[in-house]
Design a binder for these strands. Structure first.
Lengths: 200, 200, 200, 200
DNA sequence: AATGAATGAGATTTCATTCAT
DNA sequence: TATGAATGAAATCTCATTCAT
């Protein structure tokens, strides 16, 4: 036997990568295994050598996008100083209406639609796991600001809630026609910031 | 005189009412028109005398549930005094894990799944419209509390955001395994209340 | 009982007349009894007081159109002298591409489609009966021309065949993309006329 | 070597062939995909590996019949000498009342019904294309006869018209009760032949 | 390791006609 | 004579997954 034991994980990545755009074009629901196979340039049956099922393929693709997103966030947040700017970046995913961002936002919307359909219990866990990153980042932002004396110490108690508020913004943007995300954001986060700011 | 002209609106209600539970048992997606007809004790074709399509049936049923919910809320909130209690009631839909409430909560989850699937533009508008009620109620609660001198006047600026936070709680409960709704709620709303309370 | 025994035949006409245009707008197949009733300003059930079934309604409407057509033909043919002109009029139904005529031609097409579907044996007889008129007219045209010494006496033998050819033209116009009716007509009828003409 | 890649065109034929009679038994309209699959001894889904849709199946079956018919015609016409016999063969499709021929004739009738219903634009083109064969054959017959000195040279001008007359005969046989095809044929074609014959 | 042919369940909606009032 | 509420049958096509080669 040859030593070129193909790394399954690598091949999964490779297949997912080739479908990175496809998923935005046709959507997760409409994405067919046949298309994935064709796009990846392999046989339909071969897909099942590397993935449990269609859901598993979607996991891998979304996972890829999320990791990319996390990486970018980490890079960008390091450049910022004030808490206002950091919040702005933190909420960028829901505030930014650029075509590029909306592509991802709509992907997330579709993903949620499937998660809520409850047919996929494993997606719920996956979703949970991926949420921890931003929770941690938010705490870092607040701790940093507290250390600098910008805001009161007990603002840390708001971390989880702000993350939840972030979800709420996303959901309303997704599901309510004419919902003004920025207005809601500025009014609420603005007020919160005023309340926790240490006035000098 | 025989009633030759049937009250369509009434019949819609009647049919929807008979399927009130059915929708919880089998779910909105799996609900078949055949089942609806059978449950209502009428022919499949008759359904289409009163509803445009399957979606329309679901509208009517959900609408019924929502109006019921609004009514109950209005009745209950009137009995309460402190802002803490009113908030507790306001968030009851996401906090309450009783079988009865979870039935409705899961119904809402399924409804959202469909709204997010974007296949039904009319549902998005319907959803939007039905959201206004709670926005108004929250403002009433806050205004009342301000009037009583319990909280600062600028707390009113938080109304929209709290509604959004409510959505966020719902979404996280729906989509994240092991999310502790109450913990998040108590920590966040508790902190907020502290921040806006007028200390005596 | 009052002597105003409503003339059924008259009411049939009246209903048919009110749907005269409707049938061109939506087509015979798509025409629903409900629409007919609404257009006629009566109840759905009432329709069945005057008509056996939907087919019967269509009969009446088509019958009306045909009789109108016959009347016009009789009136026009009387004004013409040469056999060429009379043939032109005789074939007008297939040659004329005016919007007005195409409306009727397409109606006939749809009628044929139903007749050929064979679901309606009675339509076949109806169709047969209505065909006799033009057979008779054609014979008149030829006899007239023979009497005048324009064409040979045995041209009369072509009468049935020319009627059949007329049907053929209609069918080809209906079913073959890009069929040039006039070219076929002029070449064939022109040649026939040459063959039967009495050269002086 | 195992045949991993199936010849799609061949399989189409194979499936169509197995349903060759089925289409005559139940008719094109009533033909269900389920029946086709069962008759072909394969799964319903497999049908859609080889055909776009139901219409496509019908195309293939009709196409098969037509090609068969063309082949037989070509074979038979070669055996004949006089123009009378060739015409008889040419019109056989409308004249022949044998059970076998009527099976095909009725199939054509049903096909026409669908073409005229205009629901299938592609069928109109298909129909057009398949019509060219007989046009060419008729010209061959006439040219051959002219060459032999049987008929006048300008009889060639009648070719298109005779084809159209053939359609007319078919249509009348299909749509008029009690239409005597043979009588019409003998009288008309007989007269035409007399007119174009070169008397010796 | 790779392939791709085969599978089959599942649900919406229309509309002519009837018949109780 | 007039009405209109009730009826219910019928057939398409998609696509994730399997397994023989």
């Amino acid at each position: 036997m040859s030593p070129r034991k193909i790394n399954k994980e690598e091949k999964r990545r490779e297949i997912a990568l080739s479908c990175s755009d496809l998923i935005h074009e046709v959507g997760m629901k409409k994405l067919t295994v046949a298309e994935v196979a064709k796009t990846a340039g392999i046989g339909k049956g071969t897909i099942y050598e590397y993935f449990e099922n269609k859901e598993d393929i979607i996991f891998e693709i979304i996972n890829m996008h999320i990791e990319q997103h996390h990486e970018e966030f980490t890079k960008e947040v390091a450049k910022l100083n004030t808490i206002e700017d950091k919040f702005e970046l933190f909420f960028d995913f829901v505030l930014n209406n650029s075509e590029e961002n909306m592509k991802h936002f709509n992907g997330y919307k579709e993903f949620l639609s499937i998660v809520l359909a409850e047919e996929n219990p494993s997606m719920k866990e996956f979703n949970c796991e991926k949420n921890e990153f931003f929770g941690g980042e938010l705490i870092k932002i607040l701790e940093d600001s507290i250390k600098k004396g910008e805001i009161k110490e007990d603002a840390l108690n708001l971390a989880d809630g702000i993350l939840t508020y972030h979800k709420g913004l996303a959901l309303r943007k997704m599901s309510q026609a004419n919902f003004d995300v920025r207005a809601d954001y500025e009014k609420f986060i603005g007020t919160i910031l005023q309340l926790i700011e240490i006035k000098k």
